[in-house]
Design a protein around this nucleic acid. Structure first.
Lengths: 228, 228
DNA sequence: CCAAAAGTGTTGGTAGTACACCCATGA
DNA sequence: TCATGGGTGTACTACCAACACTTTTGG
């Protein structure tokens, strides 16, 4: 190739996790290199030669956070020449969801630390990572309403109230328990198990449900998508 | 920067146009350089140093097609190391719509020719441009149903049947004229003008409507989006 | 027995769908 | 006057939103 391009390609991910105690949380790493050494930032890094974008983000997530990713999709590409002070860096960003049991993390190569932050407790972030987070949140809110993506943030088996709390907290509005259940159950995507919730403090324990992926793919095939 | 990255960044655009005669069409250019010299391809090219992604795609579209773009949004980024035989090229792709009067084009720098192709008449395309087109079509179909994006493909003033044909042909299903009109009019986004269609062959001329952007932004502000 | 959370049905309003005839124009 | 496409209303159905009391458990 006879062109002289001084542009680098990076990948970054917005990884969301959820628990009813903490609400929606984002996984951040503390940068151990300049620029912005010590700042919190989205996990990510430069793509290696010969590596696909997806491979790159999986590798970086593994190196930096060792968190088990449950859902991943591309989010948006950011390319303002000024977004990184070192050089022009185009960042292809990803949107990821993890299950509650992934709230255990360990820090590695590129980061001195990786840590979950509740959404309403986010510090200043490095580079334009705040903008990226904003776009990711918008995507999450949007998708939650027309694809059954919420299940990817919950355990394989969960009480119904957990799903309702997730929706209510991410969408930032109260939901009517009865109507919400009717809407969800209408699609036949949830199987009721014979188990109930254990030790949740006080109150009646809820029955546990599981997401039926097979029925989901059937519905998707027929082009019928779900809507809250 | 102390990393050695041999990855290039390009931008490509899927530009859609529509006329009731031709249906949905895509703007392609004939490549005048290797690889794949002479093949049809999406307009696009390499990002220049210090240039943003958006600037790059506008520049390329101007250089290669001189078509007036009416709507532009980022689509997806493609980065498989094998997608370009010369080198690893990450392509950030865009999705664009033009009005019918832009069906006049002129070829320039990078292309010997730029030309509109009806969707059902697309040849083999260079690189992975078929995949890109696929993604763009999916995005168009999706957006058409929950954002009033169809107007961006029509003249400022258009007869109602034009809008209906657009929807019907892009979504690939028949629509009931009366119900479709009710649904659209419900949002109050269309103003009826006092003009009627001219010389459209035979039959009664239709009244012309125009899209009311002001009301659209009001609705959007209130978070109410439109649904077909 | 008290507090806390889970479970459950009915009703009224609204929006969606199905459907057919008349009107204005050009040839 | 005929062919072509534009314009319009109603009735039925299905979905949505609003709403409150009972049940199960732990303390």
């Amino acid at each position: 190739m006879d062109i002289k391009q001084n542009i680098f390609v990076a990948v970054d991910a917005v990884v969301f996790g959820y628990s009813s105690a903490q609400g929606l949380s984002v996984l951040l790493i503390k940068r151990k290199n300049e620029p912005c050494k010590g700042c919190w930032a989205l996990p990510g890094g430069f793509v290696r030669n010969g590596e696909s974008l997806e491979d790159a983000i999986y590798r970086e997530l593994h190196e930096e956070t060792a968190v088990k990713i449950n859902y991943l999709e591309q989010l948006y590409s950011f390319g303002l020449p000024t977004r990184d002070p070192r050089a022009q860096v185009v960042s292809v960003t990803y949107f990821a969801l993890v299950r509650p049991d992934a709230f255990e993390i360990k820090a590695n190569t590129d980061a001195q630390e990786a840590q979950w932050f509740a959404l309403n407790n986010i510090k200043k972030l490095a580079f334009d990572h705040h903008d990226i987070l904003e776009v990711a949140l918008k995507r999450l809110r949007g998708k939650l309403q027309y694809e059954p993506i919420g299940f990817e943030l919950l355990d394989k088996k969960f009480p119904f109230s957990e799903l309702e709390n997730l929706y209510s907290s991410v969408l930032n509005r109260p939901l009517d328990r009865r109507n919400f259940k009717k809407k969800i159950m209408k699609y036949g995507l949830l199987d009721q198990t014979d188990e109930v919730q254990k030790h949740q403090g006080s109150g009646r324990p809820g029955k546990l449900y599981s997401f039926n992926e097979k029925k989901y793919f059937e519905l998707k095939q027929r082009g019928i998508l779900f809507e809250i």
